[in-house]
Write a protein that binds this DNA or RNA. Structure first.
Length: 861
RNA sequence: GGGCAAUUAGCUCAAUGGCUAGAGCACCUCGUUUACACCGAGGGGGUUAUAGGUUCGAGUCCUAUAUUGCCCACCA
């Protein structure tokens, strides 16, 4: 036997194996000749950090599907990419230059900042690529794309131009979510609602020419500086007489109307609401409908503007304090209540959002010429895309149904700029949409045009990932691989990404972006908490790979995991999968130790399958090939792994190899190992390839070996039954031993009237000695073996145990027999189920008779 | 407020309407038999959250209830 270590030393081989795959050229689909194709455009990781276990998990799923299809002989392309990740990268990079150089982006200027951020992004990207390779992802790196690559970007920008032509783009002053820290507008999705403790202030607004007041309730009293009305519900009797009257805004003195609007909730607060269209989304809508003016009193830095009078320049919270104090002095602050309020915070930097009115670019989702909303809904509802798990379809439908116009402009510097040009003479009301800078203004012919300073929402470009990376519309990759087959993503970016990909792809290509959409859950820590840097509870995938190997990490992120459901990961779990990898390794060690010239066997003749154990393991192997394949086809990779592990460990290692020590059959051993390596390869590519390389002496590559196909002729029901018998006898004897503390070193004498075919096997596995002459002692009969253990066991205890087991079996039989007597069951149940039940009764009866014989024996002792 | 999910062994989770509801970890007993102690043999542990219903048959489908988590949302 070759001198190899008892455990698989992952760290020693993994990089080498990865290089072997990479150099083979089979990561590229071009080397495979087949009409069948498989393509998965890999989601870009954020190009600015470390690979975390969530990313790693996603890639493992994609790689398993990819490797499976590649082994099925399909032209397989896993196309990797990088995302510039607009706001996130800008936030990270700004933080970095602040920490390292104590400067802001303004110190650098736009151009320099962009260049530095670009270099930073590229640098992180190559760093992360090295990490992705560590988990074994079989992607075609030669086709790698970046959202800012000129060709990819060109396609994305063209979409904007096309949308503009189709009347789907408009620029408008609207209320938007403004992050004062990031100094940009945000879409609704980028804003988090966080419930916090807050206060509800009741403020009295005097009624003009009257001594009365109308009391409004507000959580943000500083916005009152911009109030333009007080609104009540038209059906609210309390305020019926006040509608149409005028209130005088305290501290400001502005006269504002009291209006009626049905959107006002009578039950909340006092039922009267101050209306500040510049700083509240609902107020903006109400203001718009009632044609009220807008007064911006809070600026982009979250400070009070000039229009805020004496509070000008104060921060929002500072102004709030002063205003409350001043109201108090005037006796206009009626009361203060504790309440829960929804604070809006920026998803990226966690600062409080200020709703502001701002001029932004919007994409209409329901334009006349093309409705993104309707077309997406239609595609999703009509099952054009298979969704795993299926119930996530509902979530998508709900989101598309409630879809509102999409604000795509951001005021950040990092990212592609909106392709819109203005002329100084003609003003910004006139603009030209063009990717290239036009020579001159089409109106006044002035050549001095300038570009809109805004950049795109990151999701505008990544939403086009499915076709832009493939080179829409003329690219070879696009023609060959679009629509793609698979998209895997975390459920947390369902709306951000999958929804936008569906909608953008349908618009641009007229086709769905992918046929299958698979959602993974989030990976949490052992206590079920989200992993976060600040909490320090994250599992670092690279550290785990160092410690336990990539295969163990891979197993631990998808095993026991249901699509779309969150899962937990912790070191003990990874460790136990490492143990399985070691098991695989030792199976290999056994094989090569069993004979000098052990080799993998691709196909086998029936005559080479000799013993009962041979027939049985081949039978089980063919069953497991069917099972694993069908689970994989259904995308149930966790179940596939589970079934395969049971076969490998519980059947092949624990039974077949043990028996193989007694009756060697190198052909069958080599044949089964060959199939096991292939079946495991998508899940644990490194260890399987390593073993395969050692055995194939580098002549072939497991990665592109053919996926095993089950052979119906190899199914052998009789062998299955006979072997089960053998297992039963063995287990029963072991069971007796364990119950009565009979050491394995004690060889039990057994007498058999009929010499067993599998005499030696039973002798070895059950540690008995089968003798041919009946000895003159009382014996206990198990199946057709008479065991001489009377003196070793506790008769009373064993009798009780047998009785208990018989009782259990009897009740199971009763249940099944009743079922079989039931006419309705016989009438409506499928044939196979009835058959199974009948067999089950027989099986139980057999077991009972075995135990009854035992009982009789026991009684005679 | 709307929606989605979860609730199964001590813990983490499986289970395609059909086998006595299964694994891994943990626990208990025994065991270093030259593949593996990162192991092997065996064992204990369950009213599948609760209450109804559909069905020949329900952990699985339906209806409520409870608890937990998540997502969406313009009650200031």
């Amino acid at each position: 036997m070759k001198n190899i270590s008892k455990t698989y030393e992952a760290g020693k081989y993994e990089d080498e194996i990865y290089k072997l795959w990479e150099n083979s050229g089979f990561f590229s689909p071009d080397k495979i000749k087949s009409k069948k194709k498989y393509c998965n455009v890999l989601p870009p990781p954020n190009a600015n950090g470390e690979l975390h276990v969530g990313n790693a998990s996603g890639y493992v799923f994609m790689d398993i599907f990819g490797r499976y299809h590649r082994m099925k002989g399909e032209k397989t392309l896993l196309l990797p990419g990088k995302d510039h990740a607009g706001i996130l990268t800008q936030v990270v990079y700004e933080r970095k230059i602040k920490e390292e150089r104590n400067i802001t982006r303004h110190d650098l200027g736009r151009e320099k900042f962009y260049k530095e951020a670009y270099d930073f992004c590229i640098d992180r990207a190559s760093y992360m690529r090295a990490q992705e390779k560590k988990i074994g992802i079989s992607a075609d790196w030669s086709r790698e794309k970046f959202t800012l690559d000129p060709d990819v970007l060109q396609i994305a920008l063209e979409t904007f131009v096309n949308m503009h032509k189709d009347g789907m783009v408009y620029r408008g002053e609207r209320i938007i979510n403004w992050c004062p820290r990031c100094a940009t507008a945000l879409s609704d999705l980028e804003v988090i609602h966080k419930e916090t403790d807050g206060k509800l202030y009741y403020v009295r607004y005097p009624i003009k020419d009257s001594k009365k007041f109308i009391t409004v309730a507000t959580t943000r009293p500083e916005t009152m500086l911009g109030d333009v009305a007080v609104a009540v519900n038209p059906g609210d009797l309390k305020y019926k007489d006040l509608i149409g009257k005028t209130a005088v805004l305290p501290l400001v003195g502005r006269e504002i109307p009291i209006i009626a609007d049905k959107r006002i909730d009578r039950e909340f607060g006092t039922g009267a609401v101050k209306i500040t269209p510049s700083h509240d989304a609902l107020d903006w809508e109400i203001g718009n409908d009632h044609k009220l003016e807008t007064i911006q009193v809070i600026n982009e830095e979250a400070k009070i503007t000039k229009l805020g009078g004496k509070y000008e320049g104060q921060g929002v919270l500072e102004a709030r304090g002063n205003i409350l104090e001043d109201l108090e002095k005037l006796g206009l602050l009626e009361k203060t209540e504790e309440t829960k309020i929804n604070v809006l915070i920026c998803e990226r930097c966690k600062n409080t959002i200020q709703p502001l009115i701002s001029k932004q670019w919007f994409i209409s989702v329901d334009a006349k010429k093309y409705s993104l909303k309707y077309e997406s809904l239609k595609a999703v509802k009509n099952n054009k895309i298979k969704v795993y798990p299926e119930n996530f379809r509902k979530t998508l439908i709900q989101w598309f149904s409630n879809l509102r116009d999409w604000c795509v402009s951001r005021q950040i510097w990092w990212g592609p700029r909106i392709p819109v040009w203005y002329c100084k003479n003609c003003g910004e009301d006139k603009y030209i949409v063009s990717i290239k800078k036009p020579d001159k203004c089409p109106l006044c012919k002035d050549p001095k045009l300038y570009q809109d300073p805004d950049t795109f929402d990151t999701w505008f470009t990544s939403g086009q990932w499915a076709y832009s990376t493939l080179g829409y519309p003329e690219g070879k990759n696009f023609k060959e691989f679009y629509p793609t087959d698979m998209m895997v993503m975390g459920r947390d970016i369902l709306f951000f990404w999958s929804a936008r990909m569906i909608m953008m792809s349908l618009y641009r290509t007229g086709k769905i972006p992918f046929k299958n959409l698979y959602f993974t859950g989030l990976i949490r820590d052992k206590e079920g908490r989200k992993m976060s840097k600040s909490r320090g509870n994250g599992i670092n995938p690279l550290e785990m790979i160092d410690k336990y190997g990539a295969d163990a990490l891979r197993l631990s992120v998808f095993s026991g995991v249901t699509p779309g459901q969150d899962s937990r990961i912790y070191e003990e779990k990874i460790e136990s999968f490492r143990n399985f990898v070691t098991k695989l390794w030792n199976i290999y060690r056994y094989c090569i130790s069993s004979s000098e010239n052990f080799e993998l066997v691709g196909s086998i003749y029936e005559k080479e399958i000799k013993t009962l154990a041979d027939k049985w393991i081949i039978n089980e192997l063919n069953k497991i090939i069917l099972v694993v394949t069908s689970f994989l086809e259904n995308k149930d990779i966790s179940l596939a792994q589970e079934a395969l592990r049971k076969f490998t460990w519980d059947q092949f290692a624990d039974w077949y190899l043990e028996i193989h020590k007694i009756e060697k059959n190198e052909k069958v051993l080599g044949y089964v190992l060959d199939k096991i390596l292939k079946l495991w390869h998508p899940f644990t590519p490194f260890v399987t390839e390593k073993i395969f390389q050692d055995l194939a002496e580098g002549k072939k590559l497991l990665m592109v070996e053919k996926w095993p196909v089950a052979d119906g002729k190899m199914i052998d029901k009789k062998a299955e039954k006979d072997f089960k018998n053998l297992q039963n006898i063995t287990t029963k004897i072991r069971n007796l031993r364990a119950s009565y503390g009979i050491s394995p070193s004690v060889i039990i004498n057994a007498y058999s009237e009929k010499i067993e075919n599998n005499r030696e096997i039973i002798e070895k596995l059950a540690r008995v000695k089968i003798i041919l002459e009946k000895p003159e002692v009382k014996m206990i009969k198990i199946s057709n073996l008479n065991l001489d253990i009377a003196s070793l066991i506790d008769v009373k205890k064993e009798t009780e145990r047998m009785e208990k087991e018989i009782k259990n079996l009897e009740s199971a039989i009763l249940k099944t027999e009743n079922l079989l007597k039931n006419e309705k069951f016989i009438k409506s149940a499928p044939e196979k189920i009835i058959e199974d039940n009948k067999n089950r009764v027989l099986e139980y009866k057999e077991k009972i008779s075995l135990r009854q014989n035992l009982l009789e024996d026991l009684n005679q002792l």
